[in-house]
Design a protein around this nucleic acid. Structure first.
Lengths: 353, 353
DNA sequence: CGCTGTTTGGCAATCGGTTGTCATTCTGAG
DNA sequence: CTCAGAATGACAACCGATTGCCAAACAGCG
């Protein structure tokens, strides 16, 4: 008579507000308001309802809540390649921030394909409240189409009128060039990443500015795929080149490049210095350990979600009142010096001149 | 007059079956059936409805569908640590399989905490159709509680009455031991991973069996954390030890261990051979490249989802008719020989005896 | 021509919350 | 004692699809 001798029904599914309402002798709407609109219900009544609900193990059904309100409590992060270690900490940071705010994070992998990305958006957009596009491979216009449907934040990229979170690539690049200059290098090559990459553009420009400013010979090769394989190809191309230092688009390429150099009998850093970007997992235990411009990966993910949450809050309370301050969050990068960079080798220097 | 001069309403949200029904001059139910129950609607009518729906840009609202049916088309995979490269390919494999079946994959990271895992389950269970627990940190009973609510598949672990997908650790370990034996090693140490780990138990047992069978001295040290830091500690402990070969619980530890050895002036593989488990990202470019028992990571994820999908299909069509064949999918592992293993060093061998 | 059987489409209930509106009760001031 | 106004809870209409049931239409058969 007391607890679970309910007899017939209610075997499978969990209790609803109707069950709780019946048990508490109130209307379902009151139960609903107890949870969703605190203060609207008399505190004694609310207390009683909460107690009974807890006893029955009531949990509000997210799907049922989402239907009338649109609040699914899910946000999505779309990454171009989950197997790229670049994203690990980003995802972790995003997840933590989302969880803390009561949101569930949906990670979608699109395997470097703009087409898959569009499909993933199609599938996830209707069920999320907002999205983070991490290193999107889509065009600005495609992004804007998505942003029209749900609040959107882009990561590692800037797109007009869409909030974004990026690393301070320019300053990082500048530091890297200075570091190499301090080591005596007078000729540096930038190994470019994928053509469409926003980050590649920024990095190259910063590289150009820094080298001209310091009166260093700055060259560019590429583009190459942003993978170890791409780095390997770059190593071949660079072998015939007279440069004593390279800065590569990212760590993955740098690692591949160093492996390529080893095969060709070129020693890092004695014959050539290598600098990467991002400080991904593995850049500390490759050989030699990689000097790299560290991106604040964890923060990148965290800020992206935070920005999105702010956007969501704004949207819900007055749609187009705010004049869109076009937020671009710029996070600092940091040069991590390890074993892959060293003073300019005299022998090679002679060959270079 | 033709396309979007609709005048007043319908600014914000997308069209519903009601809109389509009105435009086509049929009942909403007919529109619904057109999509969800092909054949139930006259093919001409269906064709017309489909055309009109396409013109209007109608897309069925997944939330609305989920409410009455419970079919959210989402499955979750819960991983103990997204930053562990072990999971990259697993997630990719899972995602691909899920997508192909029209499901969206929800990746939840629980940061190695059983508590966070329970919270993540709490949050995700009500909105997914099924879950994959990849390397769960929870107790069997907690897992069973979850499995009672939604179809569940466990990865890298076996739990009574719950379908599971695991690697053939035993055979892999046997191969590793034989490999070392062939190189002349007569004493091998197993560096254990976390105590609660199912895989650790299986690997240790297989190690024990293989060494006794080959009449090799098999020892065990640990447990250690399954990270690079754990491996580093292990290296210290092993330095005083007279062993010419170690097999570590996983690659991450093996990499950490090798770094520890280097610091102590112990050369790999000249002084000591190292074998890891899993073949994660980075095991090919650490120094020396790691010999490891490769787990079929991609397949692991793919099969887990496939098993789950099979379970879902079963559930929907006759709940408890099938007598539960208790499926355990066992995937083969493979020994990848690289530079971290070599013939037994005579000097060290003398010291060992 | 009448009867049965099969398509096919419509009606309406339902999933489980949310929320606008209204009625009731209670409080306190005049 | 009366009445305005606030506090509180109930009613009912949604959100958008699914689906059991029924009725109309139509075909086929004797």
């Amino acid at each position: 008579m007391s607890e679970d001798s309910d007899g017939n029904g209610a075997r499978r599914s969990s209790p609803t507000i109707y069950d709780v309402a019946a048990a508490a002798g109130v209307a379902p709407s009151t139960v609903s308001r107890t949870f969703s609109r605190p203060g609207r219900v008399n505190s004694e009544t609310a207390e009683r309802i909460r107690r009974i609900a807890a006893e029955m193990g009531y949990r509000t059904n997210p799907v049922a809540r989402a239907l009338p309100t649109g609040r699914t409590s899910i946000i999505a992060i779309i990454v171009s390649d989950v197997t790229n270690p670049f994203f690990f900490e980003i995802i972790r940071g995003a997840e933590e921030t989302a969880s803390a705010a009561g949101y569930t994070l949906l990670v979608a992998d699109v395997n470097e394909s703009a087409d898959a990305e569009r499909k993933a958006l199609d599938r996830t957009l209707p069920l999320v409240e907002g999205i983070v596009l991490a290193t999107s491979r889509m065009s600005d216009s495609s992004i804007r189409v998505a942003a029209k449907q749900r609040p959107t934040v882009v990561l590692n990229r800037t797109t007009t009128d869409i909030p974004s979170v990026v690393t301070d690539n320019a300053r990082g690049m500048k530091r890297a060039v200075h570091h190499l200059a301090d080591l005596g290098h007078t000729s540096i090559t930038y190994v470019a990443g994928p053509q469409g990459s926003w980050a590649d553009g920024v990095r190259w420009r910063a590289f150009y500015d820094a080298t001209t400013e310091l009166d260093i010979r700055g060259k560019r090769v590429g583009p190459f795929a942003p993978t170890q394989a791409g780095g390997l190809s770059a190593a071949h191309e660079l072998a015939k080149d007279a440069t004593s230092a390279v800065i590569s688009y990212n760590d993955l390429m740098a690692i591949g490049m160093m492996r390529g150099f080893v095969r060709q009998g070129i020693s890092v850093p004695d014959d050539i210095s290598v600098v990467g970007f991002d400080n991904i997992f593995g850049s500390d235990f490759c050989t030699p350990p990689l000097t790299t411009v560290a991106a604040p990966l964890h923060s990148l993910g965290a800020y992206a979600v935070q920005t999105l949450l702010a956007e969501l809050a704004k949207t819900s309370y007055d749609r187009q009142a705010a004049p869109k301050p076009l937020k671009v969050v710029l996070l600092p990068s940091q040069l991590v010096v390890r074993g892959s960079t060293g003073p300019r080798n005299a022998v090679l220097a002679k060959r270079a001149s």
